[in-house]
Design a protein around this nucleic acid. Structure first.
Length: 488
DNA sequence: TTGGGG
């Protein structure tokens, strides 16, 4: 019985044939039973406000429908109708049901690109339905409530979220351990930091592991504004549908687990995580692109640009909604307003850049002004400030919404930073200020401190250690930066 | 059988 999706609910406990557009899919996963499963959701022109679940089982992942792209058409024959929580859905039985997959566009006519059984041929009436669905889909807007898809800047708690984001890159961090880099143009909020400063040498506050391991030519393709979120795969998720995470494409990822690790957000793609159909014209993409859209189009900005000698990059980081902020004061994103805790020498006119701009800068040696949080410092005791060679040196861990890096402070720069060689009391007082440690929670007292470092302005220089590998041995130093005494 | 948005 060929049934439009609207009428499937009339055939509970019966077998039906349906043809629908695949708007969601999980990756293949092992079931609690004997098989593998792919949970799809489908729509058609008779039912598109709320998709219908179609669960397909197979002996192996190869027996499951591997949709080439969301929005493709699936023909499901002899599937049983059941209800779950008041909703009808269809179940594909590996012994009796069949499926066939067709592209959403008619590039290859009515040839299916995957079938569950060989020699499967669609009937003429099936072909009519497929053609009708293809035509209907062209003008169909699969719209979604924006509030179900928060921006990165709205992420607050460890939970499951839906994200609409752009895939920037994939990387195999270790054998079969993939990291996906996604971005939506906004900055995640800064988080409290909890680490034992005295243990920073043995157990340092982690950087994003991949910043240094990614090839430089890849890193340089990354946007320099907006947080890049890392997504890892939970155990048990087959990589069957990896191709749906196409680099450069926007995707909707549903039910992604969100975790904080050492103050950094990352996503975990679980067996319940789904990829959802998104058209290039989707309003959610438009919203996100608007948030990073260049303001250069506006005459105002062209005038301002010329007047202020600021770069395209600077303006391109500003969302429309940030315009009012930038004109009044520094925006609270990418360039958070720094606290008056530090001063930088003679660089009032220099525009600050993000740490990702620093990492991807075209020259290996350069100087920068950045607005960052100092999330860790080593050593944190004055008596350890001198190295074995007698030099004063300190390693700071700096972060902004785009990256987290190490930067050294050496010799004369230590003197500048602390306004003289600091004794134990001065070092503790100034470091507490820089790291956002309250008096009663200070370094000398409680060892594991939860701290919320303030945004401060620093001068950074990049340099290299070996001429043979200038990029591989590139380091950063803080210089020309002074922690101010309390005005009180 | 299994899973079905959480």
């Amino acid at each position: 019985m060929d049934v439009p999706l609207r009428d499937v609910c009339k055939y509970v406990n019966e077998k039906v044939n349906v043809i629908g557009v695949v708007v969601e899919t999980t990756f293949a996963k092992k079931t609690m039973g004997t098989d593998y499963c792919c949970a799809l959701r489908i729509i058609d022109d008779t039912r598109h406000d709320f998709s219908m679940a179609a669960n397909v089982f197979g002996k192996s992942t190869e027996n499951l429908p591997l949709v080439a792209a969301l929005g493709d058409i699936i023909q499901l024959s002899f599937v049983s109708v059941t209800t779950y929580r008041g909703e009808a859905n269809v179940t594909f039985n590996k012994n009796t049901s069949t499926f066939a997959l067709y592209k959403s566009k008619d590039d290859d006519g009515l040839n299916s690109y995957q079938v569950s059984r060989p020699y499967f041929v669609p009937k003429d009436e099936d072909k009519i339905i497929i053609n009708k669905l293809r035509k209907w889909l062209i003008n169909f807007q699969f719209s979604e409530d924006s509030s179900k898809f928060p921006f990165f800047r709205e992420l607050k708690e460890e939970t499951f979220v839906n994200l609409a984001c752009k895939i920037l890159h994939h990387s195999e961090a270790a054998k079969d351990e993939w990291v996906i880099f996604v971005w939506d143009g906004t900055d995640t909020q800064s988080n409290a930091i909890c680490s034992n400063l005295e243990n920073e040498l043995k157990n340092p506050l982690p950087l994003q592991r991949d910043h240094l391991s990614l090839p430089r030519d890849i890193l340089c393709t990354f946007p320099t504004v907006g947080t890049i979120l890392r997504i890892i795969f939970h155990i048990g998720v087959e990589k069957s549908h990896f191709h749906l995470l196409t680099i450069g494409k926007w995707v909707k990822i549903n039910n992604l687990r969100l975790k904080l690790y050492a103050g950094l957000w990352h996503g975990i793609f679980t067996v319940q995580t789904k990829l959802q159909y998104i058209s290039n014209e989707d309003q959610l993409i438009a919203e996100r692109q608007r948030s990073v859209a260049s303001l250069v189009d506006s005459i105002w900005c062209i005038i301002l640009l010329k007047l202020m000698y600021v770069s395209y990059e600077f303006w391109s980081r500003l969302a429309d909604e940030r315009l009012s902020l930038i004109l009044g004061r520094m925006p609270n994103l990418s360039f958070p307003e720094p606290s008056p805790i530090t001063v930088v020498n003679h660089r009032d006119h220099v525009r600050p850049v993000t740490l990702m701009s620093v990492l991807t800068h075209s020259k290996v040696t350069a100087i920068f002004k950045c607005v960052v949080r100092v999330v860790a410092a080593m050593p944190c005791k004055a008596e350890n400030l001198r190295s074995s060679t007698g030099k004063y040196r300190m390693r700071l861990t700096l972060e902004d919404p785009t990256a987290r890096i190490h930067a050294l402070v050496i010799e004369e720069d230590v003197v500048t930073l602390f306004d003289g060689i600091p004794d134990a009391e001065k070092l503790e007082r100034k470091l507490n200020k820089l790291l956002g440690i309250s008096e009663d929670n200070s370094i000398g007292g409680v060892k594991d401190t939860t701290r919320n470092p303030p945004w401060v302005c620093v001068c950074l220089k990049s340099y290299y250690l070996s001429k043979d590998d200038i990029w591989g041995t590139r380091n950063f130093r803080v210089f020309d930066t002074k922690i101010l005494e309390d005005s009180s």
